[in-house]
Design a protein around this nucleic acid. Structure first.
Lengths: 221, 221
DNA sequence: TGATGTGAAAATTTTCACAGCG
DNA sequence: CGCTGTGAAAATTTTCACATCA
């Protein structure tokens, strides 16, 4: 077993969630031609404290040089390896409404090997239509996509009431990672990972903070 | 000071982040005609444990009835009040690229009083264009939007290299809450709250989990 | 009786501070 | 010398388990 594979087992969730941020900061440094970086500088670029950065990286291995810092390219490739980004991750987007079409047109997926291999919809009237240069396929295409094209990640962009059904079909076909844009909690087996992205939730959290500081100001006056 | 305002001061961040989920579950229950709910049922709807739900709610006040449960409508209005959703929150979207246009067309904002009052872009060639029935305005409109229309939340949908400039203009105009879709860490004063939504980060976290379980399987074999 | 609300315990996450090494 | 890597401490979050009260 490689060092990376051995270490990967016990990386705390909180640290995993920050690895993509470190990778992005490193990519920016590499693009700017920087070869070496200190934990202080890298942490600033990722918006965390230097102690936290060092602790997070210590879970992956010991890739720095004391008194010097980290080699930008090397650390980037180690983090990419820890995240599993050396392989590619075929993605399917389910639900060709407003949001699904926007995601299909969005270029964010292409970065880092997330290849959109299919657009799906449950509605027969939409199936066959072209979205962002791709034909919309029926949900029944899922098993084939998993077995023949290695589909690994499902993105759910359906309305809330169709999300659980869409998720069940993904899971049944063998997909083990789901990114859920619908405002519902999905029920899945233990071996399936779901992450939710919800605009409405984020705005409400911002409202809380905005409201709280308004109250604090009123009290201070 | 009201009970809600008094209690709001010390709600842990982790609990605040879950309040929108409880509110959504309660709204669904109310729509289904359910008048009363136990912590067990509500927690299931929000995807958390019942103990966590009760602990979270205890930070807002004591709104349940022992031996019975919670009144759906009443609890929903208490949570809405704690989140500051009794007032409305004018929103501006900055950056009319692919993502900005999708957000402008997205109806998710309209829920819960997040009213999109302006679409902005820094590019003069785009200013004046109509997107989703709204004229695109220049960044110079910001001070007026804040002072005359109470603009409170800025949504940044610009490319990464324009995000900090856009953020600075929002903050300078008086906006204190920012939702950032760009893949960069924004630097802001202490009294400004920023939340980041990043597709690429979420996909990379999913890749980590997918990769890890693949490794676990290989070891087990 | 039965589900809430809550102290106390456990687990997790973050910060501190410095030993250790290039 | 300077910066990493890391034990130990502090802070935060989650779970447990039961006293409490309608």
């Amino acid at each position: 077993m490689s060092t990376a594979a051995a270490a990967r087992r016990d990386v705390p969730d909180a640290a995993v969630a920050r690895l993509p941020g470190y990778l992005r900061a490193l990519t920016a440094l590499a693009a700017a031609g920087t070869a070496s970086v200190s934990s202080e500088e890298l942490a600033a670029g990722a918006g965390v404290s230097s102690a936290m950065l060092r602790k997070d990286l210590s879970h992956l291995g010991s890739y720095g040089v004391r008194g010097v810092g980290y080699d930008v390219e090397h650390l980037a490739s180690e983090i990419a390896a820890a995240l599993g980004l050396t392989q590619d991750w075929p993605v399917a987007i389910v639900g060709m409404g407003n949001l699904g079409r926007a995601l299909a047109a969005y270029r964010g997926f292409a970065e880092r090997g997330f290849r959109v291999i299919a657009l799906l919809d449950h509605d027969e009237r939409i199936v066959g239509e072209e979205v962002a240069g791709c034909p919309v396929r029926p949900m029944s295409a899922l098993p084939e996509l998993v077995h023949e094209q290695g589909l690994a990640i499902g993105v759910i962009a359906t309305p809330p009431d169709g999300a659980q059904v869409a998720c069940d079909l993904l899971v049944e076909a063998g997909v083990r990672s789901v990114l859920n844009f619908a405002s519902v909690v999905l029920t899945v087996p233990d071996d399936v990972t779901v992450r939710r992205v919800d605009l409405s939730t984020e705005l409400q959290i911002l409202a809380f903070h905005g409201h709280r500081s308004a109250v604090a100001e009123a009290v201070a006056r």
